[in-house]
Write a protein that binds this DNA or RNA. Structure first.
Lengths: 109, 109
DNA sequence: TAGATATATCGCAATATTACGATAATAACT
DNA sequence: AGTTATTATCGTAATATTGCGATATATCTA
């Protein structure tokens, strides 16, 4: 039904999934990478950087903002986006926990 | 258009995104966690474990298999799934690279 | 071979995502 | 107040995802 049965999974599983979803599009990966590289927090140079229309970039930024891993600060006519210390930290921790729970050298079958 | 402009992003960005997408659903997170916990690689006890119909579980397993992070081995009438050493390793590396590129204590704005 | 068991696949419905043009909203400047 | 620049939101179209019943497929056992 395209509707995820969220309520039947744990809060942690849902959080991990939503943080992963934030990274589940190359444009959003590119945005994160750009914010990481240009520590000087960047606004809508992203629109120039990305091969997408301004409306689309804005939408991706909104999604990242909604899960809490980036934040925006109005600065004159433009907006300065950057990683949100708290949200990005939690996203990192939760994803790292899953990724590090299993090393790739564990055998099976 | 629901169609991602994949060709306009780097191969790395697309790979990161597709690995993240594999973790972007609580059921798939649960599957990974289950495979990690029960090192003895598990088949369709997952169907009993997850609050989803057999067809749906099978579909999620297929997605994980397609990105290469799990593999299945036929064992009698059932199938034994487990993390794929190579694929899971690459997924880990690529996601860790993004996650570790920025520590949460970096200031901005 | 016939049944039982376990998975995979098909087909469909409901909802979500991606993308963009058009337009609104906000803030600076004149 | 009017203009310009920047970003957000709306509306819409195309496609993807999620979920499941029904059915197919494959393997074991009697």
């Amino acid at each position: 039904m395209g509707v995820t049965k969220t309520q039947n999974f744990t809060a942690t599983q849902n959080k991990v999934a939503s943080y992963a979803k934030a990274l589940a599009h190359p444009a959003r990966v590119a945005i994160i990478e750009y914010l990481v590289k240009n520590q000087t927090c960047i606004c809508g140079d992203l629109v120039e950087e990305l091969p997408l229309a301004q409306a689309t970039v804005s939408q991706h930024l909104k999604e990242l903002k909604q899960v809490g891993i980036i934040k925006g600060e109005i600065e004159g006519t433009s907006v300065c986006y950057c990683l949100d210390e708290k949200g990005w930290g939690e996203a990192r921790e939760m994803l790292l926990q899953v990724l590090n729970a299993a090393l790739p050298d564990k055998r099976c079958c």
